[in-house]
Nucleic acid binder design. Structure first.
Length: 517
RNA sequence: GGGCCGCUAGCUCAAUGGUAGAGCAAGAGACUUUUAAUCUCUAGGUUGCAGGUUCGAGCCCUGCGCGGCUCACCA
């Protein structure tokens, strides 16, 4: 650490000679009586850059050919480029609305603001204020012809290449703020994601759903087949799990009397990371009393058509060059028929895991022999069916072994009223006619203990508190869960979940402490 | 976790096993309307880390780290 003068700064490491240059500039600024991080603006901001451009164009239209009267504006933003040619210079500043050129002239700014501040002490990346009238330059670009310039915040780090930006994906994810500042299309992705979530809320709120929040820290996890993260409450001396789904808490609320509830929030699953999996991800779940999975299907296709309408003005979106039409009604196909169609296997003919595994091996598949029949069927779905389901498709009626919370079909006790829906070859969500028979639910949970072996980390403990809730009486209902991140991939045309997460999970660069632990 | 690919200046990229380079950014200078401004000059590197082979390694070999793709698991 430095033991130098009081103006000697704040960062303990020199990373490059560029650092020295910029720190020297800070000293020069201070020596000239300029605070490089002033607490407030010299003049209040009057316009965003977009408003300034619009205002000038309006004045021009009103002037009908004459030179427009030029309103004086105060604009602010980050300096992204600068071109100096002697006694005049140009810079672009960028704010949340767009960018605007600043036209700096020595004869208007004077020797200090122009020659010292604008030409030498400012750097790309600095936040600045400019005050002056709007003009069109000789090349026709609307610009703020500065009478005053103020440094609002000094940048010590060099900006990425102004033309190529930052491409290295690791840098883009680790320093997302850099990615955002130089890649406007990345900013747009997260704006679209936010509008998508907003549209989902609009749809649900206007259809009588109540948005609720349920515990993230749970004494027992459940509602999905996944390994949890564990944590510990020191004072209560209690082991807790980060939730893997919201399901069991939301359905308790139906017992309590709410008829339509939803939650949008974070789930955590202690599993692999991939282009469609992040350890924490955002989920939407809703539960609606007095409907079944057919009612849920109608709502899903209606909601996503609404979201598409709000985002694009239509129901068609383009994903990786494929046009996908979200207009209802979507294709509905049973899981059995879908697997017959795409895999050529009718699993109903193979009532045991061994027989089914044998049939799969005959077709060149290599099933895990240790697993149960439901998981085998699920793997057929994932391998042969899922990649083919480009247009929105509901796949319905799942084997009971992999669906412990769904109601059995009246005419087939091996099958439950469940669907998953697929778009662009990706599984997007999952729904059932929810099981509300507490005795059946207990039997199913106990059965799960058997078919998931003791070593299977997806095996869940029996949730007695949930069974107690259901025992008070739960209305018949349909429930639904869907991955918000995957929907965001769909609506922003991205092929990896990392590109729709602002801060995707990455390994730490310095893992010394982990190794010692 | 397995397999494959990658890691060179702040950023984007070059470099047959033989003196590590360019553009942008940065510094000095010229230039009173530029648009990736232009022109002259300068500085900038433990080639991800640690070993090994070799007279000589950015390049070949081994291990490790980080990332990407892919397989497995899941949403």
């Amino acid at each position: 650490m430095s033991g130098g003068a009081s103006t000697e700064p704040f960062m303990s490491e020199d990373r490059s000679p560029l650092d020295h240059v910029r720190r020297a500039k800070i000293e020069q600024l201070r020596a000239a009586g300029i605070d490089p991080y002033p607490p407030r603006l010299d003049f209040p901001r009057t316009h965003t850059t977009a408003e300034a451009l619009a205002e000038f164009e309006a004045a021009e239209a009103a002037a009908a050919g004459d030179p427009p009267t030029t309103p004086e504006v105060v604009v602010v933003g980050r300096m992204m480029s600068r071109r100096i040619m002697g006694k005049v210079g140009f810079a672009h500043i960028e704010d949340g609305s767009g960018r605007l050129q600043i036209f700096a002239r020595q004869e208007l700014l004077g020797p200090f603001l122009y020659d010292e501040l604008f030409k030498k002490l400012l750097d790309l990346g600095d936040f600045v204020l400019a005050r002056g009238p709007l003009v069109r330059t000789r090349t026709g670009e609307i610009s703020c012809e500065a009478r005053h310039i103020q440094l609002l915040a000094k940048s010590l780090e060099p900006m990425p290449d102004k033309w190529h930006g930052v491409k290295d994906v690791e840098t883009r994810y680790r320093r997302r703020y850099v990615d955002l500042m130089v890649n406007p299309e990345v900013r747009r992705v997260f704006e679209t994601r936010a509008r998508m979530v907003q549209a989902i809320r609009e749809y649900l709120d206007s259809n009588g759903f109540l948005e609720v929040e349920t515990p993230v820290l749970q004494p027992i996890y459940g509602g999905a087949a996944a390994r949890p993260f564990t944590t510990y409450h020191n004072q209560l001396k209690q082991e807790l799990y980060l939730r893997i789904s919201f399901e069991l808490y939301l359905k308790r609320l139906l017992v309590g009397g709410y008829e339509r509830v939803y939650e949008i929030g974070r789930d955590f699953r202690n599993e692999g990371v991939s282009f469609k999996h992040n350890p924490e991800f955002t989920q939407l779940e809703w539960y609606e009393a007095y409907t079944d999975y057919h009612g849920v299907m109608k709502r899903v296709e209606e909601m996503l058509a609404y979201v598409a309408q709000r985002l694009t003005g239509g129901t068609r979106i383009t994903y990786q060059g494929q046009v996908i039409d979200l207009a209802p009604p979507w294709r509905r196909v049973t899981l059995r028929d879908a697997i017959i169609q795409y895999a050529g296997i009718d699993y109903a003919q193979y009532p045991t895991a061994e027989a089914l595994a044998e049939a799969m091996r005959a077709r060149g598949h290599q099933p895990e022999t240790t697993t149960n029949r439901g998981k085998l069927i699920d793997s057929l779905l994932g391998t042969y069916v899922e990649p083919n389901l480009i247009q929105p498709t509901f796949v319905l009626d799942y084997p009971i072994e992999i669906s412990p919370l769904a109601k059995k079909k009246a005419d087939d006790p091996t099958t439950v009223e469940r669907f998953e829906y697929f778009i662009a070859g990706m599984e997007m969500g999952n729904a059932f006619t929810e099981l509300n028979d507490p005795l059946d639910q207990r039997a199913r949970m106990e059965w799960m203990q058997e078919i998931y072996g003791a070593g299977d980390e997806e095996r869940h403990p029996v949730d007695e508190d949930y069974l107690l809730a259901m025992s008070y009486g739960m209305p018949p209902n349909g429930g639904f869960g869907t991955g918000i991140d995957r929907l965001a991939m769909l609506f922003t045309d991205n092929t990896t979940i990392r590109d729709v997460l602002l801060f995707p999970h990455l390994r730490s660069l310095d893992r010394k402490e982990d190794e010692e632990a």
